[in-house]
């Protein structure tokens, strides 16, 4: 019941309806090449990668879309399905609507044409996705790493990324200082045991007020009670 209500509310959401509308427009033009994924926020998946540049150009230039702003290009790694998604968030300042377009690429060789020619800002976005996920944007004018150093090994946002032992001789791990403290305690204990020193826990000379029960003792009592109750 509650779930239905939730669904109803969701279906009424204007952003949801807008996304569905926009997809319908795309589908009318590109037919089978695009597909709607009816998630909480519906988005379009371009299945036919040959059509992908045309779809993106259409988004920018068609009077019904006028997506003049590429908000972001990101990526998602799905190792179980062996795909990597390249995700495009586009927005139209003129018509004040937004849409999400995704392409699903094979994980072994994630290649997709660049959209740099449509939105110049894609230059840096795509470099970022290349840097962190290793998506190759074909036709990109300058596909280098953008945030990590040029000689970095691997693409760290891939789920199976393994950190290198060192980067240019700088180690990538640091021992926890707690370990050293533990070792120190152990060494002390060992020395005490060898000497036969017995440590007697010190009692505070200050007596607690009458009738006071320490939280620890209380906890113990509560646990005991619970056990009795179970028995």
């Amino acid at each position: 019941m509650a779930a239905n209500k939730q669904e109803e509310a969701r279906n009424k959401s204007p952003t949801r309806q807008k996304a569905q509308e926009l997809h319908a427009l795309l589908a009318a033009k590109f037919g089978e090449a695009v597909e709607l994924v009816d998630a909480v926020d519906p988005y379009t998946v371009v299945k036919d990668h040959a059509q992908f540049p045309a779809v993106m150009r259409h988004l920018r230039e068609d009077p019904a879309f006028q997506m003049d702003f590429l908000r972001s290009v990101t990526g998602v790694d799905w190792p179980d399905d062996s795909i990597i998604e390249s995700v495009y968030h586009v927005y139209s300042y003129r018509l004040a609507h937004a849409h999400v377009v995704k392409v699903r690429l094979p994980r072994a060789l994630p290649e997709i044409p660049t959209v740099e020619g449509v939105w110049p800002t894609a230059n840096w976005f795509e470099r970022e996705a290349y840097d962190l996920l290793g998506i190759v944007y074909i036709g990109h004018s300058d596909l280098r790493r953008i945030m990590l150093p040029d000689d970095w090994v691997g693409h760290p946002l891939r789920k199976d990324y393994a950190e290198q032992e060192d980067y240019r001789g700088i180690g990538t791990t640091r021992a926890s200082p707690l370990e050293a403290f533990k070792q120190m305690d152990l060494a002390r204990k060992k020395a005490r045991d060898e000497k036969g020193v017995v440590v007697v826990p010190q009692q505070s000379p200050i007596k607690p007020p009458e009738g006071w029960v320490s939280p620890k003792a209380k906890k113990g009592a509560a646990a005991e009670e619970a056990e009795e109750g179970e028995a």
Binding site: I170, G171, T172, T173, R174
Partner: peptide, 10 residues
């Protein structure tokens, strides 16, 4: 992955 674990490493 990108952060150096202490400046005393360098």
């Amino acid at each position: 992955y990108s952060v150096c674990k202490g400046v005393d490493k360098i």
